[in-house]
């Protein structure tokens, strides 16, 4: 299995190189001039030219490309064109926020979605099932920023359980939990909606299988039939969806981050895009690709935990 992991990581290298090239080109295709964006409309032509030289965007594109690729490979991702801070440091500052938000949302989504999906499947076409299906459809179609604002109104303004804007202070667990609770709940509920629907349908599939009948015929208690025999087999499609959704979540958490005023990768990307911060954008794209590769790898490894027929070679 270690060989499998190493091999997958080696295979990720060409992917990363290709993505870096595409990102490099894409970032420069986006209309707008970074010097203009930084200095504003009133800047003189001379100042703009100086700025372009300082940023290095006046040099031939190929030269910029070689410098970027060479630097990226040895860990020098350059400095942000706007703040002047190293790109890696900027990313490293927000990455923990994104990771904690994603992981806690995933846990919330799984804890709600898996039992709810199973429950719904077991009561197929009863009112519980209808309520769950309509509820999960609502969760899927509700825009994240609307639900985020609603949560703020309910939990922070009406009930006053949580601060509207949590301070940057995260020294104690309580403060950490306070700052994370609503954003994670917001994304977790959307995730729960996805997981509920997939779990329900794959559970319906696995409960109809012959081995479920065999387990019942052996006199295995119904609870064990459902969780050990049914759920274990139903989990594979769930893992697939979670893996795909995690990738989306990392980039799409931006609206949640803005509403709750949280730092994060999503917010950093949108900011960098608005300011034509080429170097920061490039760095963010590479990190994003890397995260997707890792999530896919973890997804594949999880299959192996669930299904003995999956072989790593």
């Amino acid at each position: 299995m270690l060989r499998f992991v190493v091999r997958r990581l080696i295979f990720a290298i060409p992917t990363l190189l290709a993505v870096m090239t595409v990102v490099f080109v894409l970032v420069r295709i986006v209309p707008g001039d970074p010097a203009q964006t930084i200095l504003g409309d009133q800047a003189s032509a001379e100042a703009l030219q100086n700025m372009r030289e300082r940023l290095g965007v006046d040099r031939p594109i190929l030269e910029q490309y070689v410098e970027f690729m060479g630097g990226a490979l040895v860990g020098d991702w350059g400095e942000s064109m706007v703040t002047g801070k190293p790109v890696l440091a900027e990313i490293a500052r927000v990455l923990p926020y994104t990771i904690e938000l994603t992981v806690v949302s995933l846990i919330i989504g799984g804890l709600i979605g898996i039992p709810l999906g199973a429950w719904s499947a077991l009561h197929r076409n009863e009112w519980i099932d209808y309520v769950t299906r309509v509820g999960s459809l609502l969760g899927l179609s509700f825009p994240a920023f609307v639900s985020a604002i609603l949560m703020l109104i309910v939990f922070s303004i009406q009930l006053r359980w949580l601060p509207v804007i949590s301070g940057g202070d995260r020294a104690t667990f309580g403060e950490w939990a306070e700052s994370l609770a609503l954003p994670a709940l917001n994304l977790g509920l959307i995730m729960a909606a996805y997981i509920t629907r997939v779990t329900r349908s794959s559970m319906l599939g696995s409960l109809g299988e012959d081995y479920i009948r065999t387990a019942r015929a052996k006199g295995v208690p119904e609870r064990v039939v459902i969780w050990r025999h049914g759920m274990r087999n139903a989990l594979i499609p769930v893992v697939t969806v979670v893996g795909l959704y995690l990738g989306i979540l990392i980039g799409n958490s931006v609206l949640t981050e803005i509403v709750f005023n949280r730092p994060g990768l999503g917010k950093l990307i949108v900011g960098a895009l608005g300011q034509r911060d080429y170097t920061l954008l490039q760095g963010l794209m590479i990190i994003y690709t890397f995260v997707i590769v890792i999530v896919n790898l973890l997804t594949d490894l999880t299959y192996g935990l669930i299904d003995p027929r999956v072989k790593y070679q």
């Binding site: 299988e209 012959d210 081995y211 065999t214 274990r232 027929r309």
Partner: peptide, 14 residues
């Protein structure tokens, strides 16, 4: 009871 389909009557993950 013994079932007709030995290929699908055993749980594949146990």
């Amino acid at each position: 009871m013994i079932f007709q389909e030995p290929m699908t009557s055993l749980n594949p993950v146990l």
